[in-house]
Structure formats: structure tokens, C-alpha cells
């Protein structure tokens, strides 16, 4: 069953209005439009009358879940795409949020976001955790996610050349980091000088250090939402490395991050029978 944006928008507005009117939440985080540009932008509303400013459409690319970290102590409702709900589930699994403070308005049957290449790989088109849902749920059997394997088919030398070309464009604005739900560290390794990890230059070696280290921190946590890639102003394939780790976690440990708030995180859940390819062999 097809969802249309007008209907999704109306349903979201209805939930937001009721929640704010009844004082169930202090704030609703959703999507709206910038007044002058008409571009989709995160919208934070606190009064029921503002509910009609909320929208939902295929341009709603920002991962709103990250904003929840700014409101840990207040009651917040959030418009959550399925990937947002996975981020929320991860935050709950990591004890970063209080479930009782949260009202999740999940988007059912997410049609995907314009320009987000992660959406074609997506297998989770319905919210994994929610209080309300807008739209009709999609039957998983209808999904035919495509795994991007162009990179897998390349030789190592071709892959290196590919990433050299990609990362050579990096201007180190850190938009990928700031858009990513995983990157909530108080101090990023890029800002640490004791120990000193990565230099201040935008030379290839420093750009590689940044992207490789950031990717390694994503292992078992990346939900392959594509927020990093959507945020990158230089069109860099920032998602490729963390997405690879996501696939490795799935293949080796049958693990997918952010599927259940009760789930243990990959790196805190060890079993002696876990495969350990490449480790001491």
C-alpha cells in the first residue's frame, strides 16, 4: 500500500497537536520548511498551534534522532523515520535516553529519501520502536534491498584509488561527524592533541586518518542511514566504510545495530564461539 506525503503530514500534525495540547510533551521535533528558501529543515515546536508547520516528504533527510541528546531531561516527541527509530533504539540500548521521556511518532512504510543512496540498501522500512505511527506499514516481503557491491568487486588497488579520489575532496568540515548519530563523543579524537591522532592539514594522509578512524568507531553501531553522506557538501562516499563494517557485523555475528532497545551492543556482547577472522591466525 502506497503512502502519500499529504496524508503522512496530516497524521503527524494530528499527533503533535494532541500531544502538545494535552501537555504530554514539552516539545515536538519534526520537519518543517525554511521560510525563504522553502527547503526542508528540522523544526522544533512547543505550542499546539505550531503543529501545522510540520511536514513530511521525500526531502526529509536529516536524522532527527541526534537532537534527542540535547533534551535528555525533558519530554520530547519526535517524528522518526525507521532509521531514526533505530538510532533511538541504539541510544536506549546505550542508556543515553530515558524511554519514559520520549514519544516516538514513527513513519511507517518509509519510501526512502531523495538522493540518499543508503535507502536502496535499507531493509527496515517500518519503525523498530514507536508510540504512534503515521502511514501504512510495508510488508517486508515487498522489499528488494540492493546491496551495493561495486566496491567489493574492485581489486584492492582500485579500491585504494577510489578512496584516494573520494577523500582528496574532504575539507574537514566534519559535517559527516556532526550529522551521525554515533558521533556524540564529548571530545572527538580529531580535537585531541594528547594523544595526537590527526593533523590539521587537508592532505590525503590526514583525511584518510580521519575517515578510517571514524569508520572504525562505527563498527557495530552504524545503522547505514546515510546521514553522513547526505551531510557531506563535497559529495564524498563517506558511508562506504562504515557500511562495509555494518555488513561484516551482519555476516559474521548476525548483528544489526539499533533493532531493539534491549539488545546488547556488538562490542559489549562476546561469545567464545564468535568467529575471529584475521585474529591471531
Amino acid at each position: 500500500m502506497e503512502n502519500n506525503y499529504k496524508k503522512l503530514t496530516e497524521e503527524i500534525r494530528g499527533f503533535a497537536f494532541e500531544l502538545l495540547k494535552d501537555g504530554k510533551v514539552d516539545r515536538v521535533i519534526g520537519y518543517g520548511k525554511e521560510e525563504y528558501s522553502g527547503e526542508v529543515t528540522p523544526l522544533f515546536i512547543t505550542a499546539p498551534d505550531e503543529s501545522n508547520r510540520l511536514i513530511f516528504n521525500s526531502e526529509c533527510s536529516m536524522l532527527l534522532a541526534k537532537y534527542l541528546l540535547n533534551y535528555r531531561e525533558s519530554r520530547v516527541a519526535i517524528v522518526a523515520k525507521p532509521c531514526d527509530t533505530r538510532a533511538i533504539a541504539s541510544y536506549l540500548a546505550e542508556n543515553l535516553l530515558k524511554r519514559e521521556n520520549l514519544v516516538i511518532i514513527g513513519i511507517n512504510g518509509c519510501p526512502g529519501i531523495t538522493g540518499n543512496t543508503a535507502c536502496i540498501e535499507c531493509t527496515v522500512r517500518n519503525p523498530v520502536i514507536f508510540d504512534f505511527t503515521a502511514g501504512e506499514a510495508i510488508d517486508k516481503a515487498e522489499l528488494s534491498p540492493r546491496v551495493a557491491n561495486e566496491l567489493e568487486e574492485m581489486t584492492a588497488a582500485e579500491r585504494l584509488a577510489y578512496f584516494q579520489e573520494e577523500f582528496s575532496r574532504c575539507i574537514r568540515c566534519y559535517a559527516c561527524r556532526e550529522a551521525c548519530y554515533v558521533c556524540y563523543c564529548e571530545e572527538c579524537f580529531t580535537d585531541s592533541n594528547q594523544p595526537f591522532w590527526v593533523g590539521g592539514s587537508v592532505k590525503l594522509k590526514d583525511n584518510f586518518t580521519f575517515h578510517l578512524m571514524r569508520s572504525m568507531h562505527m563498527a557495530g553501531r552504524c545503522i547505514n542511514c546515510g546521514a553522513c553522506e547526505m551531510a557531506c557538501p563535497e559529495g564524498i562516499d563517506v558511508r562506504a566504510l562504515p557500511a562495509k563494517l555494518t555488513r561484516v557485523a551482519r555476516e559474521l555475528y548476525n548483528y544489526e545495530a539499533g533493532m531493539d532497545p534491549e539488545q546488547k551492543t556488538l562490542l559489549t556482547d562476546y561469545d567464545v564461539n564468535d568467529p575471529q577472522p584475521g585474529f591471531l591466525d
Binding site: 521560510e35 525563504y36 528558501s37 527547503e39 526542508v40 529543515t41 536529516m62 559535517a175 556532526e178 550529522a179
Partner: peptide, 12 residues
């Protein structure tokens, strides 16, 4: 504005 990941508009 063109490049902002969240389309924050300085005009607003």
C-alpha cells in the same frame, strides 16, 4: 545555506 546539512537559513 546552499551547503548547510540542515538548511539553516541566515535570512530567517
Amino acid at each position: 545555506l546552499d551547503n548547510c546539512p540542515v538548511n539553516l537559513d541566515i535570512r530567517s
